[in-house]
Amino acid sequence: MTETGRLIPRRRDAHPVPYDPDYKTTMTRSPNLPLLSMESTPSEETGPRFGHGLIGALDNNLIVNFSKGAAPAIGERIRVHGRVVDENARPVPHTLVEVWQANAGGRYRHVRDTYFAPLDPNFGGCGRTLTDENGYYEFLTIRPGAYPWPNRGNDWRPMHIHFSLFGHSFGQRLITQAYFEGDPLIARCPIAATVKDRGQLDQLVAPLDMAASRPMDYLAYRFDIVLRGRRQTMFENKPEGM
């Protein structure tokens, strides 16, 4: 039943507002007209699946995956780990988690990033993994740097890691960002501030997790993720009127 039920409708108030003048680009990129709301169909309840054959041995280790193990990336070594569950609190096993981030200096390895902080020859900035049977995932990486961006006069992004999640259906697709406990730039960030529900914003901030850190090696941050769930019922497994 878990794999066939209708998706629980998205709570739009739990998500960022699409239009926010403090994040200027949203002003021309947010739909003006209402979204068409409808119950999910098989088109949203199915989705791509990715197998273990896809994932290389170094894919979830951003410290060495760009240099293929030849030399480590520069920066504070951190482990980022957590669980992917759905709204019914069930684990989401064997689902693809992709991440990308700036290097320790706040520079992305992208043809369009022109910030003058230097590239790290040993850091690419992307990683991926599959959750295990309990929905658990982990990455080893370096703490990303904060960086300035053209928006208002002097806006800076807090340290963050971008996360992309598939779940098991196309309607669960989600991209979000993990912030780091204690970063004073979170409260000043107009992108973080598009999430108006304070509790929801707090859920984007990964706490320091000393118990998961390793002495003389890395600090750990915990980032749990909730994807859309499915309505659990026996009542709608047959066509109407039957």
């Binding site: 709570r11 960022p16 990308w100 991209i175 979000t176 999430v195 929801q200 984007l204």
Partner: peptide, 30 residues
């Protein structure tokens, strides 16, 4: 016992790095 879906955030200008790295000028990781 119902949880709330994690809030979305923009993919940003560098979404290609994580999803289609070759397009970002970052081939070879995968």
């Amino acid at each position: 016992g119902v949880l709330t879906e994690t809030a979305s955030q923009t993919g940003g200008p560098y979404v290609h790095i994580g999803c289609i790295p070759s397009f970002a000028g970052l081939p070879g990781v995968y």
